[in-house]
Computed example of a mutant assay.
Amino acid sequence: MKAIVFDRFGGTEVLREADIEIPQPGPGQVRIRVRAAGVNALDGKIRSGALAAVFPTPLPAVPGLEVAGVIDALGPGVRDVNVGDEVLGWSDTGSYAEYALATTVAPKPADLGWEQAVTLPVAGETAERALNLLDVAAGETLLIHGAAGGVGTLAVQLATGRGARVIATAGPGNQEYLTALGATATHYGEGLVDRVRDLAPHGVDAVLDAAGKGALEDSIALRGGTERIITLADFRAHQLGVTFADGPQQRSAERLAALAQDAATGKLVTAVAATYPLGRAAAAQEISDRGHVRGKLVLTVD
């Protein structure tokens, strides 16, 4: 099968297309004929070697954490799905490939496109886990940095769904987008503390940093300390006394199925920034590495 692999850590130039063996499902696994693979910022960090201590990656490796496609083989002990089912979930073997193995999958609603489906597993789990760690509740004000990205897009909607008010930071081109999602949008950068204080005179109750680009100091000033601040991407967190949300993922097929159903009915908005064929994975990761992407970058596999 065709797959994108990397044999050493480095920039996007280490990614190459290769012919490798089709993986065989083990106990509890399904094999998926991939239709779409999500491109996440984490993919680039793993590829670069920056997270080698956290995500040990034997080389050569196939990138990709999330997958959507059609089940074409079942491993021993699999009972709740069938060959031919359309699913989305988390890949065990890397999703930048024609076939991938997965243990946790959810059914893809017929009204949900492949590209939209694959925006949900990683971003949905990350957003929900962060909101739970922050214990965001109705009536509170949550500040989200990098709110227009894949995680931020879902976090804004899930937080407002809990009854919280969301103040969302992003660039000029994403202000109307975030307002349409239900947030109070504002620009990031110089003067942020004053802008947020004008919008929330009584303060913010919690902060979720999905940007990882120097927003922690402002967040600490707005909170008056480091409590109830979580970053998903700023590696300076520990030296500043802020929580880095690098705990174990909580992969739930049931929660993913609920998110997929909400996305299919329009209750939950998903955003696909751009799609690329599998062979252009390096170009997609290069854009992801730069940041400032609205929604999710997606690889499509014919």
Results as ranks from 00 to 15, higher is better:
6 F>C: 08
8 R>A: 14
13 E>Q: 10
14 V>L: 10
15 L>W: 15
16 R>E: 14
18 A>Y: 15
18 A>G: 10
22 I>N: 04
24 Q>M: 12
25 P>C: 09
30 V>D: 13
31 R>S: 11
31 R>N: 09
37 A>T: 12
38 G>W: 07
40 N>K: 01
42 L>T: 00
44 G>V: 10
49 G>T: 13
49 G>V: 13
49 G>A: 03
50 A>I: 09
54 V>Q: 11
55 F>A: 12
56 P>R: 10
58 P>R: 07
59 L>G: 08
63 P>Y: 11
66 E>F: 08
71 I>Q: 08
72 D>A: 10
72 D>I: 13
72 D>K: 12
75 G>V: 15
78 V>K: 14
80 D>C: 07
83 V>F: 03
83 V>A: 02
86 E>Y: 06
86 E>G: 10
92 D>Q: 14
95 S>G: 14
99 Y>P: 01
99 Y>S: 03
99 Y>W: 15
103 T>E: 15
105 V>I: 15
105 V>P: 09
107 P>F: 12
110 A>L: 04
117 A>E: 11
120 L>M: 11
120 L>P: 00
122 V>D: 04
123 A>W: 10
124 G>A: 04
124 G>T: 13
125 E>I: 11
125 E>C: 04
128 E>A: 13
128 E>T: 15
134 L>N: 01
136 V>G: 10
137 A>M: 11
139 G>S: 08
141 T>D: 13
144 I>W: 06
149 G>S: 05
149 G>L: 05
152 G>L: 03
154 L>P: 07
157 Q>N: 02
159 A>Q: 07
160 T>A: 08
165 R>C: 06
165 R>E: 07
166 V>G: 03
168 A>L: 01
168 A>K: 00
170 A>Y: 07
171 G>D: 02
171 G>E: 03
171 G>C: 00
172 P>K: 11
173 G>N: 05
175 Q>H: 08
177 Y>W: 09
177 Y>V: 02
183 A>G: 02
185 A>T: 02
186 T>G: 02
188 Y>H: 08
189 G>W: 00
189 G>S: 06
191 G>P: 05
193 V>I: 01
194 D>P: 07
197 R>A: 01
205 D>T: 05
206 A>V: 05
207 V>Y: 00
209 D>E: 06
210 A>C: 08
212 G>S: 02
213 K>P: 01
217 E>S: 07
222 L>R: 04
222 L>P: 07
223 R>V: 09
226 T>C: 01
226 T>D: 01
227 E>S: 14
228 R>Y: 02
229 I>R: 14
229 I>N: 09
233 A>L: 10
233 A>E: 06
237 A>I: 02
238 H>V: 01
238 H>T: 13
239 Q>M: 09
239 Q>D: 15
239 Q>I: 12
240 L>D: 04
243 T>R: 15
245 A>R: 02
245 A>Q: 06
247 G>F: 02
248 P>Q: 00
249 Q>T: 02
250 Q>V: 11
250 Q>L: 04
251 R>F: 06
251 R>W: 04
255 R>S: 09
258 A>H: 09
258 A>N: 09
261 Q>Y: 00
264 A>C: 03
265 T>M: 07
267 K>D: 04
268 L>N: 05
268 L>W: 02
273 A>I: 11
274 A>Y: 11
275 T>E: 00
277 P>K: 12
278 L>H: 14
279 G>D: 10
279 G>W: 01
283 A>G: 05
283 A>T: 10
285 Q>Y: 01
287 I>K: 15
289 D>L: 07
297 L>E: 03
297 L>I: 04
299 L>A: 06
300 T>I: 08
